[in-house]
Computed example of a mutant assay.
Amino acid sequence: MLHKVLLSTDVTLVCCQHALSTEKEEIMGLLIGEVHKDNSLVSIVSSVILRRLDKKPDRVEISEEQLVQATLRAEELAAEVGRPLRVVGWYHSHPHITVWPSHVDLATQSMYQRMDSSFVGLIFAVFLKDQTTKAPQIQITCFQSINEGSNQSRREIELEITNTTDSLILHNFQILAKLPEILKEEEDEAYRIEAGQGDVMDILNKQHNTAVRTIAIGHIVEKISRPMLEALVARNELNAFRLKALKKQHQELMNKLETMSCSV
């Protein structure tokens, strides 16, 4: 039985950024990792951002093709890093509502568990405020479903956020960088669907749909792409500063070692 889940910091960042990309609909993705210790421990080391088929405030749908593609991506990543990685879970967001899974979430989780008993679900509750400080807050829960006759309930799984391994840092940041592109693809698909439903000669309807798409893409650039770029630039500068400090420390240690060798 699964008792604990280890979630890497970079995957946490990707999931949070994805969840914060919209406060009107839920988002969803899959989690890639490794199962340890007789299925009692799962480590999550990467993720797959899924493009939504339908945008709804209380649920999200994906295609079977996307599930297959995620499985193939897990196999490719496993071959790259030399570890038995596979799809081990899913995540989605709860904008403006409690972090606890709904009956729809529990049913979805139960379906996945029938295929894999170690499969886990993560929920990122975003756009919340601390009742005391009124500061923005993000809550995360990790759960599995328990079937009790015709009823379903949740079983909370212990969740620990851990450092990302060096071999996967670049891979996870590449996933994060693809988020704006995936969101734009969703808007393009919604635009094509709306355009196909209206009269070809309905100029006002076409202009309205074009304006909605333009506003949505502007939102992606303003609220996601630009802040993400600024954060990555700041992180790169911090890493450069740390590298410089480490090189200086290394040189000081080498000088001490050389002095000790000469004295001997």
Rank of each mutant, 00 (worst) to 15 (best):
H250E: 14
N255R: 01
A177L: 12
L246V: 05
Q109Y: 06
D10T: 10
L72M: 01
P136E: 14
I44A: 10
P227Y: 12
H3D: 14
A211S: 14
G33Y: 05
L31I: 10
E156H: 10
A19I: 07
D188F: 07
L6A: 04
V212E: 07
I175N: 01
I203F: 13
D54T: 14
L53R: 15
S263T: 13
E222I: 10
R154K: 08
I182E: 00
L41V: 15
R86G: 13
T71Q: 06
T12F: 09
D105L: 11
G149S: 00
D166A: 15
K184L: 04
D10W: 02
A231L: 12
S40P: 03
A74P: 07
L257E: 09
R83P: 04
Q174L: 12
S40W: 10
A125V: 01
N205A: 14
V45D: 04
R83M: 08
L7G: 03
S167E: 15
S46L: 15
C262R: 08
V88D: 03
S118R: 02
V120A: 01
L168D: 04
D199C: 08
T214I: 00
S150E: 14
M260Q: 10
V233D: 07
L30D: 02
A177C: 03
N239A: 09
S93V: 05
T162I: 15
M228E: 05
K206R: 15
L30E: 06
L106D: 00
T214Y: 12
Y112M: 08
K223P: 01
G29V: 02
V35Q: 05
L246E: 14
V212W: 03
S43A: 14
S117H: 01
G149P: 01
N209R: 11
I217R: 02
R114W: 06
M28S: 09
A74Y: 05
I182D: 00
M228P: 08
H18Y: 06
D199W: 12
H18C: 04
G196K: 00
W90R: 12
T12P: 00
L257Q: 12
K184A: 03
L13Q: 06
K256Y: 13
Q144D: 03
Q109P: 10
I62A: 04
N255Y: 01
K244N: 09
V200N: 04
S263D: 11
E252Q: 15
H36V: 07
H94E: 07
A190L: 08
R83F: 03
